[in-house]
Design a protein around this nucleic acid. Structure first.
Lengths: 129, 129
DNA sequence: GTGATATATCACTGTCGAGTAATGTATCGC
DNA sequence: GCGATACATTACTCGACAGTGATATATCAC
């Protein structure tokens, strides 16, 4: 059985880690780094991000331990530090690819009990606020 | 090999789905729903969230297809709609549990090339901005 | 030393979203 | 019909963070 009733603190930590991945720019960077370590300039070219912006994202990834950093002369090479994260991304990608529609859809207006009437939309719509 | 160079649109979708999970309150709700479907009142008790707040989080989870909704009389039961998401959460939990330190740590001040001098902290620290 | 290159950081703006109180809507019992 | 209960939605405040231009720092070449 999968019993892991996380504490509030752990919930926060898990959420924080998800938040690092909840940004297209950072996912893009991780994707670039899959092919191997890259220095910042190469990442700028590959992603199209501005230097300052990319630098901040790299900082975020680094602080959270998702990427490692090595200086080589004037260049700094970044590399994926935790391969397990890529596993997570792949899993999520597969889930997204398997999604029914193209975007978050509200799944019908509201849940209705099988026996209840349908529709009956906005009985008296009270124009004035 | 793991070649999946996502398009910009897909990156956005993956990030959006991660963002849904990047919130302690929503993780808490999902955790509560693991034991089986619950109605809103029960979730309020279980999570301690305010009604309006919880309702918004449930809406978010529902719109993104993570939970399903069924009306039963005056009650509305929510249930996990996509078990795969829980797999993702478990994976992340295990990664977080395996983290070295307790919080996002900056991993040493800065990367240094193996041959370069150590330290030499702030050569002339230029007090004035 | 000077200048050039590579990267990080600062200060700022704008947007997004969590939380809240108040209000709206649907269902039940009478 | 009425009131009560269960939930959703609205309107708002506030903090977090992405993006940007300017500037600071570090390393190299000379």
């Amino acid at each position: 059985m999968n019993r892991t009733p996380l504490s509030a603190r752990d919930l926060g930590r898990v959420a924080a880690r998800f938040k690092v991945l909840a940004e297209p720019a950072r996912l893009q960077v991780l994707q670039c780094l899959r092919g191997g370590p890259q220095h910042v300039g190469a990442l700028i070219d590959a992603t199209g991000l501005r230097q300052a912006n990319l630098s901040k994202h790299l900082q975020t990834l680094h602080v959270h331990g998702l990427v490692g950093r090595t200086r080589a002369g004037r260049f700094i090479h970044y590399a994926i530090a935790d391969p397990a994260v890529m596993t997570l991304c792949d899993l999520m990608c597969r889930q997204v690819a398997a999604l029914p529609a193209s975007r978050p859809r509200p799944r019908a207006r509201a849940a209705r009990a099988p026996g209840s009437r349908a529709a009956a939309p906005a009985r008296s719509l009270r124009a004035g606020r």
